[in-house]
Amino acid sequence: MALIELRDVTKTYKRDAIEIPVLDRVSIDVPEGEYLGLMGPSGSGKSTLLNLLAGIDRPTRGSIRVGDTETSSLSERALAGWRARNVGFIFQLYNLIPVLTAFENVELPLLLTNLSKTQRRDHVMTALGIVALSDREKHYPRQLSGGQEQRVAIARAIVTDPRLLLADEPTGDLDAKSAGEVLTLLQRLNKEYKKTIVMVTHDPHAAERATRVLHLEKGTLVEQTPAAVGG
């Protein structure tokens, strides 16, 4: 059984009286352990698709199942709890809180668990160790490079050990070298730590690292690239 199952998902936004279709009857299966790349031009609906997978937006029609949970039917409150347990989100602009240290930023999702302070510390240091930033735990985001900031954001995404990682243009704001490091890290998380990853990207080089790439255009799946390089 696939970890993610989207069936005929349609998303329409309303601006005044006008309905703007963003996704039109999209169906996708993502098996556990897959590293899926989502490509497409701006406005094709790929970020919307990612938001629907993350449960931070709701489909107009269709169903979304992740693991055993039909997320499209969960209440707002239940969805927030589900996100905390099951999804790690990596943003293009890192979204680190500037007034918190790297350690504290990574600790944030653990505040929603019942872990003790010592257990939280262990989890945070493990996550920072995976992204090779253990020595930067006390640094504030402004004291880190863009690549390092994104690695802290990845540590934050994996600190609760979720099955699913969702990345929205994770290299979109990085130079080539840092982007390479981040992509290698994501690949490692997929292979070594068996994380299922769905990554939205514009960048063909980034997409090359995925095990499968889907193309979206005007809200529909237009092409499927079977078994890409995969590194």
Binding site: A84, I97, L108, L112
Partner: peptide, 12 residues
């Protein structure tokens, strides 16, 4: 930041 916290699972 609020959006990020909500995405992480912090409730309203």
């Amino acid at each position: 930041e609020i959006g990020m916290l909500r995405a992480l699972g912090f409730s309203r």
